[in-house]
């Protein structure tokens, strides 16, 4: 069967559900953000949209899993899925690149210019006399008030170790899958999920600490902006990744996947490694230097 011709599904119903879901979700968010009279329906619309999207994902993945387990996918279909996942991850890399770009630009150009370096001499003299370029900073106007930063070799270091370990555990799971040892597979999967959850726990702690004790908020000038947007989007990816890992763990328990046929597993593993690598970059550029 694996060498049969290319499977082309007919009449996909989930995509249109997904489009409607996205439409509701973003319209709801937009209403919500705007406040004002119609804001009341915003949260509800957003929630309904999100629920629709989640429903769509369940339905869509269920279809795919069913087809996969029925053996409809030959190696070419598998290769298409792989291509899809690789390029999707590449697009995510570029999304993060935009925010890293903002961080580097601010640190290497914007802040020094405000401090009078290079072409910024007159900017500093006329607009911000006395302002010196330092990092971290919340700018010449001290936007958001005094704040302190989260030290790198503390919880962030711990979180680095947690994520690195989870990269190892998922590799162990992969080995177990290749050797068809179900028990070990499930164990390592659950361990990975647990590490993901632990990471999130510490990150939430860190955010609470930052807001309550350090005075560091999203509004703390350019430092707060880049810090929270980078770590925040990363945290969202960890959340999604953890949920996907959990789903895969359940599928492992349900007896899905074979040593030669487990694209779903690998896709999630790739995603998890990607999240891992982004964190390493974050740890280095946001916390350490």
């Amino acid at each position: 069967m694996a060498q049969g011709s290319y499977y082309v599904p007919h009449q996909a119903k989930w995509p249109i559900v997904g489009s409607i879901g996205l439409f509701l979700m973003v319209s709801g968010f937009a209403n919500w953000m705007n406040g004002g009279n119609t804001a009341g329906i915003g949260p509800w619309m957003a929630a309904a949209g999100a629920a629709t999207v989640i429903l769509m994902m369940f339905g869509w993945f269920a279809d795919v899993i069913r087809e996969s387990e029925r053996g409809l996918y030959n190696t070419k279909v598998d290769a298409s899925f792989r291509q899809g996942m690789i390029w999707f991850i590449f697009s995510e890399v570029m999304f993060f690149a935009a925010f890293f770009g903002a961080l580097f630009y601010a640190r290497m150009f914007a802040v020094p210019w405000l401090g009078g370096v290079g072409t910024g001499a007159m900017t500093n003299e006329l607009l911000y006399p006395g302002f010196q370029a330092t990092w971290p900073t919340n700018g010449p106007a001290n936007v958001g008030g005094e704040f302190q930063t989260v030290p790198a070799f503390d919880v962030p270091l711990l979180n680095t170790l947690i994520l690195l370990t989870s990269g190892w555990t998922i590799t162990m799971a992969h080995w177990a899958l290749k050797k068809m040892k179900r028990g070990a597979l499930v164990f390592w999967m659950l361990a990975t999920v647990a590490l993901g959850a632990l990471f999130l726990f510490y990150q939430v702690e860190e955010y609470i600490h930052a807001y309550q004790d350090l005075g560091l908020t999203l509004g703390s000038g350019i430092y707060g902006s880049t810090f929270f947007m980078l770590t925040g989007f990363h945290g969202m990816h960890v959340t999604v990744g953890t949920i996907m890992l959990l789903v895969i763990a359940f599928r492992c328990m349900a007896g899905h996947f074979r040593p030669d046929h487990h694209f779903g597993f690998e896709a999630v593993a790739w995603y998890w490694h990607f999240v891992d690598v982004v964190w390493l970059a974050l740890f280095l550029f946001v916390y350490v230097v």
């Binding site: 903002a102 601010a106 936007v143 000038g221 350019i222 929270f228």
Partner: peptide, 14 residues
């Protein structure tokens, strides 16, 4: 909407 200062010089952005 969320007080960031990416594009605001007063907050160190540009």
């Amino acid at each position: 909407f969320f007080d960031t200062s990416f594009f605001n010089a007063a907050g160190g952005g540009d």
